[in-house]
Design a protein around this nucleic acid. Structure first.
Length: 417
RNA sequence: CGGGGCGUAGCAUAGUGGUAGUGUUCUCGGUUUGGGACCGAGCGGUCCGGGUUCGAUUCCCGGCGCCCCGACCA
């Protein structure tokens, strides 16, 4: 894409009503637009970044047998009444609306009940199991207080998946597969070294659930962590009993602030019993489905990456998440058009090869181009100027490493297209 | 939902019971071109409602919005 056509504008100063680093940077760089407290729109750069986050998750979910679906945002009241969770006393984040035709609907803050209800139409026999589905959906939650930019909003993107299994053994396989998939996902996001699977509150059925917590000042959680032993415990379940069960001493653990980026949850049989989702097992007996749910907050993920991978000049995206893989920057003096001709030729050539490239063809000062490039944070930057032209090479700059080197066009194409 | 703070131009930020200023963005002209370059000109503003007052952007009341702390967080 030509940067001269990109409608979004960067700004030197963040709006005064944003304190969180993630929202300040993402707004300054033109990735998102604030609509109201806790509600943000995705602009071209933000949308592309969010889509890349989703694509990584999609690939890893597909790799473990996940099937992508998309549930509706509007949800019938009745299925939530069946489990008692229509009640505002029990669930305090409901958005609800009246139907003009009569009756009420809810806006999806979770899809556990609707998906269980939907699966009644598709799961009859143990032969139908396991089923593992996921979706990318905007969740709507009537939070009393939105905060931390895009990390805790009233409308936010989430990958949620649900497993339906014939018994515990089958469930455990999916559970373990999901842990491994999540580890690959966070590896690809470039935050594996600061993200830890954490013991967290379980539920009616299990003692613990597992969360993936990323060390981040803007987070809302505290975990007790031992990096060497790879053990992390959410403060909410921190107790002598827990320590004993996990075989660690409190002195070995360090309390750190984190953001929850993922969770995996074992419902056991209880959820299916509540919903009324049964199947016939091999012996022909009516049996509740063993369920699990697994989430990754995709917009929160974008916020966390903005928080932990930025510097004082702006965003610093890891290559796989970067809105574009290549940022081609033209620096042209007024007296010479050679650099522009060369940049145009290279840009068109890259496009024809299917490269993912943002081309700064604007007629603005070099300083502004560099400042914008730093702010936007595309991982690989290439400069074409009279200087590089006379050297017969292209200047490469790594936003993450901060290093510069000269490379040939051939190298650019082989490595970055 | 409890507590605190803040609403002045697209953005940021001064100031004042009596003509609202600066930076930036934007428009135009010129000079520039490897780190938000320079000079000149121009466009553009007091959240909404009520009250006090000769006069309110300023003071008072209410509303709405936004931010922070706490509570909450399937």
């Amino acid at each position: 894409m030509r940067q001269s056509k990109l409608f979004t504008k960067t700004r030197k100063e963040a709006p005064s009503d944003e304190v969180s680093k993630n929202a300040q940077l993402l707004i300054r760089a033109g990735f998102i637009n604030k609509e109201m407290a806790g509600v943000y729109s995705m602009l071209p750069l933000g949308l592309k970044t969010h889509e890349k986050i989703k694509q990584i998750i999609r690939e890893e979910m597909n790799a473990i047998g996940g099937q992508e679906i998309l549930m509706s945002s509007l949800q019938p009241k009745e299925i939530w009444e069946n489990t008692g969770r229509w009640d505002d006393e029990l669930v305090d984040v409901w958005f609800k609306a009246e139907l003009k035709a009569g009756g009420e609907v809810g806006f999806g803050w979770s899809h556990e009940e609707p998906i269980g209800e939907m699966m009644k139409n598709h799961i009859r026999s143990f032969k139908d199991l396991p089923v593992y589905v996921y979706q990318f959906q905007n969740k709507l939650r009537n939070e009393l207080r939105a905060k931390s930019g895009i990390m805790r909003g009233r409308e936010f993107g989430m990958k949620d998946s649900y497993s339906f299994c014939d018994g515990e053994e089958q469930h455990n396989k999916i559970y373990e597969d999901t842990i491994k998939a999540y580890e690959r996902i966070f590896e690809r996001f470039g935050i594996a070294d600061r993200t830890f699977m954490t013991f967290a509150p379980g539920g009616a059925f299990t003692e613990f659930s597992h969360e993936f917590q990323t060390i981040c000042d803007a987070g809302e959680d505290y975990i007790y962590l031992n990096k060497e032993k790879n053990i992390a415990i959410n403060e909410e379940v921190m107790s002598e009993e827990t320590l004993q069960k996990l075989g660690v001493k409190k002195e070995e653990l360090k309390r750190v602030k984190t953001a929850e980026v993922g969770n995996i949850f074992n419902f056991g049989l209880q959820k299916a019993k509540d919903i009324g989702l049964f199947y016939k097992n091999e012996a022909g007996e009516k049996t509740p489905v063993w369920m699990g749910s697994y989430g990754i907050g995709t917009t929160r993920m974008m916020g966390v990456l903005a928080e932990v991978m930025s510097d004082n000049k702006g965003l610093v995206w890891p290559e796989e998440v970067s809105p574009f893989k290549i940022h081609l920057i033209l620096l042209d003096g007024k007296d010479t058009t050679d650099a522009r001709d060369e940049a145009e030729r290279l840009y068109e050539d890259l496009l024809s090869r299917g490269a993912d490239v943002l081309y700064d063809d604007r007629e603005v000062s070099a300083g502004q181009k560099f400042a914008d490039a730093d702010l936007i944070g595309i991982s690989n930057r290439f400069v074409i100027s009279d200087k590089t032209l006379s050297a017969g090479q292209i200047e490469y700059y790594s936003r993450q490493k901060g290093t510069t080197k000269m490379i040939t066009e051939q190298e650019l194409i082989e490595r970055y297209v």
